[in-house]
């Protein structure tokens, strides 16, 4: 059974608790093991934050969830990552489909050098979207509204997306991800290149999106993690530089009464 068939069934029930589950996942770049034995379950329609010091493998884990690591020559994964109960690393699963269902927003805004309109419609068009011109306009508007940028760009839909400000570009990229109607959105430090006001806008947006989407966000900003996320996963490198999951739980608990001494040290700013 492919993800497509599963998801149809699943969607009807709409009560599976977890959107994504990692089971004993190890990730390698060539012979270097970047991530060691990570198991965690991501709850549906919640925001999960990955935190940890630089180089501990947060991005690597995040990118494994929609098979973006496939694009890096020499990268390899052991273990299982389940999406609707199906291992997305099974040979019969096409990464293209995985990526359509699990969207991604990157650290640096990367709008295509096309018009705002074409940026939004790019995903739907390649994924076999069919509809009238009016429906396309509607889709663009909804995606842009969904990313809370409609009001700022509605008069310049046919100007290049690269001409927007950094924060606007990032929201455009979120809108672009929304337009293919994914279920999960992965965000890798989406605010690190932005000013505080743009950051605030994106945080508000995430809380809004939580109603319909499962969001996983990597952040170096402790306040941000505690402000927006429902769950927090703390990663750390072990002695041979392989990233490990140290602690995972509701954000409240991780930030107020962590079980692990290392988590407490990190959160209170004692290292990292």
């Amino acid at each position: 059974m492919t993800v497509a068939e599963l998801s149809a069934v699943d969607m009807a029930q709409a009560n599976g608790r977890y959107a994504v589950e990692l089971h004993n996942t190890h990730i390698y770049y060539g012979s270097f093991r970047a991530v060691k034995d990570v198991s965690l379950q991501i709850e549906r329609q919640r925001i999960t934050a990955f935190i940890g010091p630089s180089g501990c493998g947060k991005s690597t884990v995040l990118r494994a969830i929609n098979r973006m690591n496939d694009l890096i020559p020499g990268s390899r994964l052991e273990g299982r990552i389940l999406f609707h109960g199906k291992n997305i690393y099974d040979p019969d699963v096409d990464p293209v489909e995985v990526r359509r269902r699990i969207g991604m927003v990157f650290q640096k805004p990367n709008p295509f050098p096309k018009s705002i309109y074409d940026n939004i419609m790019f995903g739907p068009r390649i994924n076999g979207w069919r509809g009238t011109k009016a429906q396309a306009d509607e889709l663009v508007e909804r995606a842009l509204r969904g990313a809370a940028i409609w009001d700022e760009v509605k008069d310049k839909l046919h100007q290049p997306g690269t001409a927007l400000s950094g924060g606007q570009q990032q929201r455009l990229c979120i809108a672009r991800a929304l337009a293919v109607q994914p279920e999960v959105i992965l965000m890798d430090e989406p605010c690190s290149a932005l000013d505080p006001i743009s950051t605030l806008k994106i945080e508000e947006l995430m809380l809004e999106l939580r109603r319909n989407y499962t969001i996983i966000i990597v952040t170096h900003n402790m306040q941000q993690a505690s402000r927006v996320s429902d769950y927090t996963a703390f990663f750390l490198m072990d002695a041979d530089r392989a990233g490990q999951l140290v602690e995972y739980g509701p954000t409240e608990q991780i930030f107020t009464s962590p079980n692990d001494k290392r988590t407490e040290d990190y959160i209170s700013g004692r290292f990292g």
């Binding site: 709409a14 739907p124 509809g131 509607e138 319909n212």
Partner: peptide, 28 residues
Amino acid sequence: MSTTLNPGERPTGYLPEGADINRNIAAR
């Protein structure tokens, strides 16, 4: 909020779902 896209509904054109996805991807 009614302005966000709801992945469950298909208000704006048709994106392949279910078996259509497989056909779509195979063609691509």
